[in-house]
């Protein structure tokens, strides 16, 4: 039997949920960034699943996914740049310790 759409959505949702948990729970900034990538992947999966199921003429969902790739790549680059430059100030990437924005 073919895989029902709901299954893909379920996987996407669970993956998204895992990614969120990672963002909220881990201390290391790089790991947080990784978790964000997981969330993005989850959305990509959902988009492609819907796109393939409901619209095959122009595949707009997939087009959107392509653009998400672009943005995710850019975001990782800039995010890491920020992390590195913060690391230069104090040799830590622990988000609980970086509190300069307090108040």
């Amino acid at each position: 039997m073919a895989v029902p759409l709901g299954a893909f959505i379920a996987v996407s949702a669970v993956l998204f949920f895992i990614g969120t948990a990672g963002v909220l729970v881990r201390r290391n900034a790089v790991v947080i960034l990784m978790s964000v990538e997981l969330m993005l992947n989850a959305t990509n999966l959902a988009l492609v699943a819907f796109s393939r199921r409901f619209a095959s003429i122009d595949e707009r969902g997939s087009v959107f996914v392509v653009f998400i790739f672009v943005v995710a790549a850019a975001e990782v680059a800039v995010g890491l740049a920020i992390i590195l430059s913060a690391y230069r100030n104090r040799p830590t990437v622990d988000v609980d310790e970086i509190r300069q924005m307090k108040g």
Partner: peptide, 11 residues
């Protein structure tokens, strides 16, 4: 996820 369980095949 449960909502979509009966939907037709993807792909």
């Amino acid at each position: 996820a449960f909502e979509f369980r009966d939907s037709a095949a993807a792909g």
